[in-house]
Amino acid sequence: MGDKALKVLVVDDEPLATERLQLLLARAQGVDLVGTASDGEGAVRMAEALSPDLLLLDVAMPGMDGIDVARALAAANAAPAVVFVTAFDQFAVAAFEVEAVDYLMKPVDPVRLERALTRARNHLHGREEGASGIPPASSSPYLEEFWASDLTGLVRIATRDIDRISAERDYMRLHVGQRSWLIHHSMGALEEGLNPADFVRLHRSAIVRRDFIGGFGRNPSGRWIARLADGSEQPVGRLYSDNVRAIAGR
């Protein structure tokens, strides 16, 4: 991006939300608001015509919603970066899947908006370096972060910080030290998305970071049990016994 102004297109079907973002962007440094759109179809047309660097994109819109807009633009060369702006936190996983660079909750906090603009600039700068033959900072095909909601809004969780993941009905709980967060995801999708060099599935309802495993033992019935670094134990399901043998080299 260099010193060029960040060209921003605001997309929201609520006039007051659009006005608030316009006011916040007017105070931001190095930003050029190139237009606003009030629906998904209009957003796609304007993005194609104006070639913005960044979309501040509402998720819940009638007709073509924000996720659909992001998917439609993703196929284009030099697709704009996307920051979702929404009153609903249940779209966080879908936002991650379309590679949004950030996810803001309404009403948008000015400090969080500045942070999102910085993330967008870094994302675009990394993409430019990749196009010039310099590898971007990260080109991993695996999940590197998650979004989860808490009392303050949404929190970004780096995959490398996760100790283990446990299933709770339709949700997955991410355990990081003494804290944990719920995300709406499936265990199978997580298993596919996580780097197998770092994580291993030990049970139909449990994935554990490999270096969080301190050892293995057996319970009275002869089943494997993983001893974890925090002193807890994780039973190993029958279907995943081969994973234990692969880790132990036997």
Results as ranks from 00 to 15, higher is better:
227 R>T: 10
234 Q>Y: 05
50 L>R: 13
246 A>H: 11
100 A>C: 05
86 T>P: 08
47 A>H: 06
22 Q>L: 15
80 P>M: 12
190 L>E: 03
51 S>H: 14
56 L>Q: 08
248 A>M: 15
207 I>W: 10
63 G>L: 04
90 Q>H: 15
159 T>C: 10
146 F>R: 10
30 G>F: 11
94 A>T: 01
200 V>N: 03
121 R>Q: 08
3 D>E: 05
247 I>R: 04
56 L>S: 03
159 T>E: 04
206 A>T: 10
72 A>N: 12
65 D>V: 03
36 T>W: 09
249 G>C: 08
29 Q>A: 13
70 A>H: 03
230 D>F: 09
22 Q>P: 00
57 L>Y: 13
234 Q>H: 05
212 F>I: 00
46 M>S: 10
192 E>T: 13
64 M>P: 00
1 M>I: 07
231 G>Y: 07
128 E>P: 00
25 L>N: 02
193 G>D: 09
91 F>T: 03
240 Y>W: 14
26 A>P: 00
80 P>C: 08
151 L>S: 12
76 A>N: 11
232 S>V: 06
103 Y>W: 11
38 S>Q: 09
13 D>M: 09
169 R>E: 12
241 S>I: 06
101 V>P: 01
112 R>T: 03
168 E>N: 12
66 G>Q: 07
169 R>C: 00
180 S>L: 01
30 G>Q: 11
